[in-house]
Design a protein around this nucleic acid. Structure first.
Lengths: 204, 204
DNA sequence: AGGCAATTAGGACGGATGTGCTACTTGACT
DNA sequence: AGTCAAGTAGCACATCCGTCCTAATTGCCT
């Protein structure tokens, strides 16, 4: 199973990946941050099982390129997941045969549900309702245990596992346990990505 | 090209206009000194190419009106250029999808650079305090070559060497060369430390 | 009492990372 | 012409990192 996530916002990209991974454990998730990367990804994988598409990525003009994309991938469900709620863009998307539109503002479980429906052939448009305060950082950090937060803080200072072990008076093996669990919660697989997410979320 | 400058301080307003004119020679720059004028300006120009927004203008409550503004202009880059560095305001801005925050205290060329990045889809927060502390480290960052800065920016996004190689269309070997040289200049020996220094210095 | 999450510790393994070499090209400056 | 900095590309090696295992302890909840 192959999924292509198209988004130039790394934080949201990671969040969306986490959701998708929870839905499809065995999925191979590829990323594209701009139109060029999207085209490369499609070239390498001519028939992915799902594409989630942000409308505002570098080099992509939805007025023209959304149609091209739909034409080149007639069998693949394309779900637009975007902050843009411009009606013109939505109607344009529906006109060219995009399978669904989901606003980035919706709750994660609702987004997951929408993705599933779209993949089962539904055509739906789900705008962000009145719910808007969904605080990303608290959602992310709320999932972390106390020790994981300790470790994350030291990771953000640039410390290695060994240094963290000395600082917290732990075995390096234990540090690795926390790091690994931490990454799983954040949906990343490298300490650098974790720092990127944490700092962007205002983690202190 | 249309730009709306929202600020109630005429002197700063003029200075910002000058910077914007140097960036976009053909831009039509409009001013709004309070919330009412902002609404009028948007009514007259429903899709400007950029809005620079001061958080403290008469009649504007950022806790509620920032979201309305974002919702009414989903396609327009909105850059907050403000004296206030209230963390609550900044996180609120980021939560509602404001594209960037730049303190009025930063250097003009840095402000210009930030505006450009925001208009290219980046979301960045540049506090003045970051710049003050970066006077020391701007020496560090000044020592970096253009390619090294490219690499550092992608490292800060959490990318691996392989991903960076794909992004910049380089060999992974070359990326490692830049990474290594970069670390030597910054005086670190891990990408995580590099991110820690870069973000603490307000590097975008 | 039993279950469960968190924390601690370790082993094994594959892959990523960082450094130290060599080597070529290009453009700018002398 | 010569030099030098920057960028490109590759190889080798040691180390670190991240994941997948097992296993023990603690405390909390049912």
């Amino acid at each position: 199973m192959q999924i292509v996530v198209v988004d130039d916002h790394p934080i949201f990209r990671d969040g969306l990946s986490q959701i998708l991974r929870s839905l499809f454990v065995d999925a191979e998730i590829m990323y594209a941050g701009d139109y060029g990367q999207l085209q490369s990804a499609i070239k390498d994988n001519p028939q992915p099982d799902l594409i989630t598409l942000d409308l505002v990525i570098p080099g992509f003009d939805w007025r023209t390129d959304m149609l091209k994309l739909r034409r080149s991938l007639t069998l693949t469900p394309i779900a637009i997941v975007s902050m843009v709620q411009n009606d013109e863009a939505i109607t344009c998307a529906m006109d060219v045969g995009i399978n669904g539109f989901v606003s980035k503002g919706v709750q994660p479980d609702l987004l997951a549900d929408s993705i599933l429906q779209i993949m089962e052939g539904e055509t739906l448009v789900r705008r962000a309702g009145d719910i808007l305060s969904s605080n990303d950082e608290s959602n992310l950090l709320a999932k972390l245990t106390a020790r994981q937060i300790d470790v994350l803080r030291l990771i953000c200072k640039g410390m290695s596992n060994k240094e963290i072990a000395r600082e917290l008076d732990l075995s390096p093996f234990t540090v690795r346990i926390h790091v690994s669990a931490l990454f799983k919660s954040l949906g990343v697989s490298s300490r650098t990505s974790a720092v990127a997410i944490a700092t962007a979320s205002g983690f202190s």
